[in-house]
Design a protein around this nucleic acid. Sequence first.
DNA 1: CGCCGAGTTGAACTGAATCAAGAAACGTGG
DNA 2: CCACGTTTCTTGATTCAGTTCAACTCGGCG
Lengths: 192, 192
Amino acid sequence: MEQNLVYTLRDYYPDLSTKSLEALSKCTRILRVDKKTQLVREGQYAHHLYFVVEGLARAYYLKDGRDLSDWFAFEKEFICPIQSFFYGIPSPHYIETLESSVLLAIPRDQINLLSDEYRDIDRLGKIIVTQTMLTLQERVTAYRFENAQQKYQHLLEQRPSIELRVPLIHIASYLGITIETLSRIRNAKRKI
Amino acid sequence: MEQNLVYTLRDYYPDLSTKSLEALSKCTRILRVDKKTQLVREGQYAHHLYFVVEGLARAYYLKDGRDLSDWFAFEKEFICPIQSFFYGIPSPHYIETLESSVLLAIPRDQINLLSDEYRDIDRLGKIIVTQTMLTLQERVTAYRFENAQQKYQHLLEQRPSIELRVPLIHIASYLGITIETLSRIRNAKRKI
DNA sequence: CGCCGAGTTGAACTGAATCAAGAAACGTGG
DNA sequence: CCACGTTTCTTGATTCAGTTCAACTCGGCG
């Protein structure tokens, strides 16, 4: 049954009660979308938090015509236009799928309501935010003093499948390096 | 009365109930310390979350003998050895004051207990973590594509007083640049 | 006074960006 | 199912921001 997909949230946070999951089921939409589907566009407001059941999505923005990737969400991970979601401002980010994907779309206002009503949903939110904070903390620390090669290595260790699933151009912009440099790094590795 | 200092937490989160503040007062220690006091050393576990009432503290770690600043906490801001606090591992960070300071030291285990008992304390925690996440998000986005000069400019906009209160060497490592480069940037600005 | 850490200045060097082509892979329509 | 155009990736040459190394200045403090 389609609705059961909401239970995959337990893959992220096993302590979610059945009552909470039922409440989430009532408001959550299940999206089955093609590769390259845009879920959010620049200027829009964050209406949903997305959870990737299957597939892969990325958040990016356009700066001087360049496409800069900021975040990837693989299976069992969350993604949303972060500034819009938390500051309530129009999103600078686009969000799109990189593969045909299955996602849960949980409405932002429902998250706020349900966080008041269900303690475990509130806790889920706290855990997502805490994990995101720790990931970003590591990203800052690592990127500040690592060279292009080390940054790429670091990324591969944390997300081994990224090499095969994400085009070089998005990985390069995520790391803050050019595609030429990344291509050379890959090439040097191949020769080892 | 000394204990009233705990009420300065309302400067950060005005919605804290008196009941919660009283509960926090019971376990919070007030520290009045000199400049250069070490609050946490590498290898220690995070026993406290610190709130800066007056003064200024920084988190840093040593890598190949170099002193690398990771975080500054000014008045009405929080600081702790973040990995140790959330992962429960020994801290890679030191924390020290940069000025003579007044701090609140809130025990980690009490925070966990009181977060279960008092909803607003739980919310305070969620807010701190969310703000930290958003700050780090901006730091990553900005630093990835800004040059040394822009990064410094960016920092000055967000923390105008840092120029006068923090030695150049710590600002440089925070930005991931050398002291020579930062010195030249300052010099160039002076000439405008 | 003279020392010491913090900051400044200069010169040479280097990792990564930029600029410029070409090769390979991809998908869309005939 | 192949041809063609478009996008993605590779490779090379040049340039430049920032590092490294080295020496020097300044201000505070014993």
